[in-house]
Design a protein around this nucleic acid. Structure first.
Lengths: 191, 191, 191, 191
DNA sequence: GATGAATGAGGGTTCATTCAT
DNA sequence: CATGAATGAACCCTCATTCAT
C-alpha cells in the first residue's frame, strides 16, 4: 500500500528511525535496508530524501548534536541555578548523552570517523554555549584555574570514558570535578 | 613467482603490513585483500597465518599494546627520573601513541569496538604499571588528591583528545596536568 | 541491461533454474553464481529472493516433494483404479521420480544430507497418503502380510535402486512387487 | 621432527585415518588438511602417496568394500551355518555396515556420487559372493521365488534404509526378510 | 512522492593442489 | 621420504546504489 506523507514529516521519520537504529546497533551494522524496513518504507524512498548513506549519517549526527545543544542551552539559561548547579547539570548531560549514544559514537561509517565527528561537534558546541558562562565565573572569581575551557574539555571526555566504564557514583564524580576545576569541596552535587 | 620465507618472518611482515594499513585507513576499510596485496602475497597465505580477520586484528592490537607497555615499563623503572619527570614521560607516551594510532583506534571491526578494546587495554595496563608508582607518590605526600588513579585516567583520555585536536603546546599541557593532579606549579616539564 | 519482472515470476524462474541445475550437477557442484548466470541475473538478485543457499535448497526440495505428492494424491483418489492398479501407479511414480531426481537426491549440501531429507520426506508422505489405502486393502483381505507399510517402504527404496541401475522391465518389476507384498501372480501390471 | 616410515605402512596409516574421518564427518567436510593433521604428517606427504583427493577417496572406498567382502566371504564359507543362518548373518552385516558408514556414504565428493559408488560396489560384490550360495538354495528347493538376486538387492537396500531410520527390532526385520524371500515363518533368526 | 526489483563491486573464507627445500 | 609455505580459484554472502514504473 502506498502511503503519501508530507515531505518534511517523512524526512523526519526516516531521520529518527535511522538515529534509533544507529544508536542501537551502530552505524556500520545498520544497512539502508534496515532503516527502510524499520520506517515501513522502501529503500528508494530513503534515497529520495538522502542521496547517500553518508548524508543520512551526517544528518543524524546533526540531529543528535542539536538535541543536546538544546538541552545545554536550557541549562545555561536557567535562572534558578547557580554556577555549581549549572556545571553539574552540564556535565551530567554529557555523561548520559555519550553513554546512551555509545554505539552510535563508537562505530564508524565508511569515510570518516563518527566518533571524532560527534565528540568534536559536541565539545565544540559545549564550549560555545558555556563560553560566557565560564567567563562570568572567571570574572566572579569562582573559577581560578588557567585554561578553564581546556580543563572542561578534558573533564567531559575523560569523565565520559570513566562513566561508560562503570564509574558512576555521584560522590566520586563530584570530587573529581571539584579537584580538576579547583572548586571548593562539596560545591558540586550530582543527582 | 613464488617467494618462500621463514614462517616467523612472514608472520611478522603480515602483522606489520596490517598494522600500517589499519592505522592508515582504519580496520573496516582495510580488506584482507588489501593486506595481501600490500604484503605482496595471496589472501590464502594471510589465512595460513591468521585464521580470520578478527584474529589478525587482535594480533595487531596485542602488538600495539605490547609496544606501548614496553616503553611504559622502561619509563617507570628508569632510576634517573623523579616522579614529575616520569609522570611527564608517561603522559607524553600516551598522547603520542594515541595520536599516531588514531585511525586504528577510531575505527571498529564488525564484532566489537576496537576503540574500546585498545583504549581499555591501554589504560588498564597504564594503571597496572603505574600503580606502585602512584602509591609511592601518595605515601611520599607528593600526590594529595583523592582518587588519583581515576584522575590519571581522565587526564590520559581527556588530554589525548585535546592533543589530537591540536592543543600540543608543552607549557599549556604541563599546566593542565599540574592543575588536575594538584601538583606544584612548574613541577611538570614536557619536552 | 536491466530486465524487471514480476516478483513471483522471477522467484519461480530462479527456483526452477536451481532445480534444474541441482538435478543436473548436484547441489554441492552448483554455486549460487551458476544459478544466477543460468537465470541471466546477478547473484544479488538470487539473494534478494532467497536469503541463503540453504533456503533455496529447501525451497527446491519443497517444490519437488510437493509436485510428487500432488501426483500421488491424484492416483490415490482416482475412482477408476482398483487396488492393484493404484499400487502399480504409485510405485512407478516413485521409481521415475527418484530416477529423474537422482543427482539432486544423491548429492548433499553443507549442513545436512539432502538425500535423507528428500527420501524421508517422500516416503513419509507416501505412507501418509497410502495409509488409508493400505488399511482398506488389509481389511478387504487383499493384503495379508505383516508390516505392510514397512514392506512398502522397502519396496520403494529397494526397487528404486534396482530401477536406477537399469532393471526396468515391467514384467520383472511386477513379479518382484507381487512376491514382496504376497499378491496373486499377475495382479500387478506396470505400463 | 621428521619421522620416516616404510612406504606401505605410511600409506596404510593415511588410508585408515582418512577412512575414520570420512566416516565421522563425511567426505566433503573432511579436508586434506584435516587428514594430514590427524595422521600427524604434512599435506605434502598425503599428496606423495595419493595424487589427489579423489584418488584417496577411491582408495578408502576400496578398503571399506574389501573389509566387508572379507567378512562376507567368511560367512558364506562358514561350514557350521545353514542357509537361514548365513542369510541372517549376511543381511545383518550389510545393515550394520551401511549404518556405520552412513556419513561416508551419504556425503559425496566432487565428481561422482559416493553413495552410488559404495552401494553399487557393495551390492555388486554381495551378489558375486552369494551367487553360488543362492543357486544352491534354489536347487535345494529352499528358495522358490523368482529373481532371488534382485529380491536380495531390494532387501539389502530397502532394509538398510529402514534400519537407518530406526526400525531395528530383530523380530520385525526377520519377518520382513521371510516374507520377501518366501521363506518359512520362523526360519530367520537375527541376533 | 513512492515502489521494489535489479545491479555490481567487494568482503571474508575455504581448500585442493603445488613446489622449493 | 618428508616438510610446510604458498598459490589461486571458487564460494557464500552483503550492501550501497540505481532505475523503470
Amino acid at each position: 500500500m502506498r502511503v503519501t506523507k508530507d515531505a518534511e514529516v517523512r524526512r523526519q521519520e526516516i531521520l529518527e528511525t535511522a538515529m534509533l537504529l544507529f544508536e542501537q546497533n551502530g552505524i556500520n551494522k545498520t544497512s539502508m535496508n534496515d532503516i527502510a524496513k524499520a520506517a515501513a518504507i522502501t529503500k528508494g524512498l530513503v534515497y529520495y530524501y538522502f542521496s547517500s548513506k553518508e548524508e543520512l549519517v551526517t544528518a543524524v549526527i546533526d540531529l543528535v548534536v542539536e538535541q543536546i545543544n538544546q538541552q545545554l542551552q536550557e541549562i545555561v539559561q536557567a535562572p534558578s541555578l547557580n554556577f555549581y548547579e549549572k556545571l553539574a547539570e552540564i556535565l551530567l548531560l554529557y555523561l548520559v548523552a555519550i553513554k546512551e549514544r555509545h554505539k552510535l559514537i563508537d562505530f564508524s561509517p565508511a569515510t570518516t570517523g563518527v566518533y571524532e565527528l560527534v565528540k568534536n561537534r559536541l565539545t565544540e558546541s559545549a564550549l560555545l554555549y558555556t563560553k560566557d558562562f565560564i567567563r562570568q565565573a572567571v570574572e566572579a572569581g569562582i573559577l581560578t584555574i588557567d585554561y578553564p575551557e581546556y580543563t572542561l574539555k578534558i573533564l567531559i571526555n575523560g569523565l565520559a570514558d570513566l562513566y561508560v566504564e562503570g564509574v558512576q557514583e555521584p560522590k566520586v564524580l563530584a570530587v573529581l570535578i571539584e579537584q580538576s576545576l579547583g572548586l571548593p569541596k562539596g560545591s558540586i552535587k550530582l543527582s
